[in-house]
Design a protein around this nucleic acid. Structure first.
Lengths: 147, 147
DNA sequence: CTGTGTGCAAACATTTTGCAAGCAG
DNA sequence: CTGCTTGCAAAATGTTTGCACACAG
C-alpha cells in the first residue's frame, strides 16, 4: 500500500536537497531508508536506536536524527504527532490520509479512516464557505490496556 | 456561555478534594479562579505567571501549578491538548467541545460544533476500545474572502 | 497534632546549539 | 577547496522529585 518506491522517494529527497543547497549524505539516506522500511510511528529516540542498529558502521548520533527529522518534516516527507510530555512521533508521509487515536498514558497510536467523518468535514467547510486543503483529527484517550 | 458559576465549580472541587483526602488551599483556589476567569488555553508557565501576578502575596511556585494542573486534569476539571514539541496547553472544562476551521491565508479561525461528528468519534473510540478524554480537529483551508 | 501541601533547588528527560573535524560537490 | 554536515558535549527547555518547613483539618 506504498504510494511510491524507495527509489522514487530518494529522487524526490535528492531534488529537495539540491534545491536548498544541501548535501546528500549516508546518514540522511539511512534515516530515510529506515523510515521507509518501517511504516510505523517513531519517537526520535526509537528511530535513532533502529538506525544505529541497522547501520552500525555509520556511528550515527541522535543529533543527526533530530536534524534530519526536522528537515524531512519541513519539506513534507514525514508528518508528526505531538504527544505532550512524552514528546513527538514521526511517520513517513507515504500513506493516504488517515487519522489517529492516541493513548495519553502509554502513547500507543491507532490509525483509522472514516469516510463519513470526511464527508461531514466537507459539509462543515461548505457551510462556512471554506475551501478545504487539509485537516487534522486526533482522538485522545486511554486504550484498553491502560484503563 | 459558562455552564456553571465559580461557586458551583469550587464546590465540586472541594468535594473532589475531600473524597481523596486532599486539602483545600489558597494556592489551589487561586489557580482554579484564574482558569475560570480566563477561558483560554494556558501553558503551564503562562498560567503560573498570571497567577503570580494576580495573587502576588501567595508567592506561588511553578511546581504547585504543575501539581495542581495534573490534579485537575486527572479529575476532569481541565482538559489538555498537546501542541508542539514543547509543551501542552490546558483549559478549564466548562465549554462544550468545539473544533476549528483555520484559514491558511489570513489566519482567521472559526469555531464550530457538530454533534454528528462527535458521535462518530465516540463510535470509532468504542470500536478500538478507547476511553476518550479529549480530541482535536482542525480543518485547514481558504475562507470565502481569501479564495 | 498529623499528615498533606508548598517553595526551593536539584534531578530528569528531551531537544537544540556551539564547535572542530570530516566529507560532498 | 568551500562550506555544509557530523558527533560530541554543553546548553536550553519543560517537567518532576526530594526535602524541610508551613498549615489545613
Amino acid at each position: 500500500m506504498k504510494i511510491m518506491s524507495f527509489e522514487e522517494l530518494l529522487e524526490e529527497f535528492k531534488k529537495l536537497l539540491k534545491n536548498n543547497g544541501l548535501k546528500f549524505t549516508a546518514q540522511r539516506e539511512a534515516i530515510l531508508q529506515t523510515l521507509y522500511d518501517n511504516p510505523k510511528h517513531f519517537t526520535s529516540e526509537s528511530l535513532y536506536l533502529l538506525v544505529k542498529q541497522s547501520y552500525p558502521k555509520l556511528n550515527i548520533g541522535i543529533t543527526t536524527v533530530y536534524r534530519t527529522l526536522n528537515l524531512l518534516e519541513d519539506n513534507g516527507l514525514v508528518t508528526s504527532i505531538s504527544l505532550g510530555v512524552q514528546g513527538k512521533k514521526f511517520e513517513i508521509a507515504l500513506k493516504p490520509h488517515h487519522d489517529h487515536l492516541i493513548c495519553e498514558k502509554c502513547g500507543k497510536i491507532v490509525e483509522f479512516e472514516d469516510d463519513e467523518i470526511e464527508q461531514l468535514q466537507h459539509d462543515i467547510a461548505n457551510m462556512y464557505e471554506f475551501q478545504l486543503t487539509n485537516h487534522l483529527m486526533q482522538l485522545y484517550g486511554h486504550c484498553k490496556e491502560c484503563q
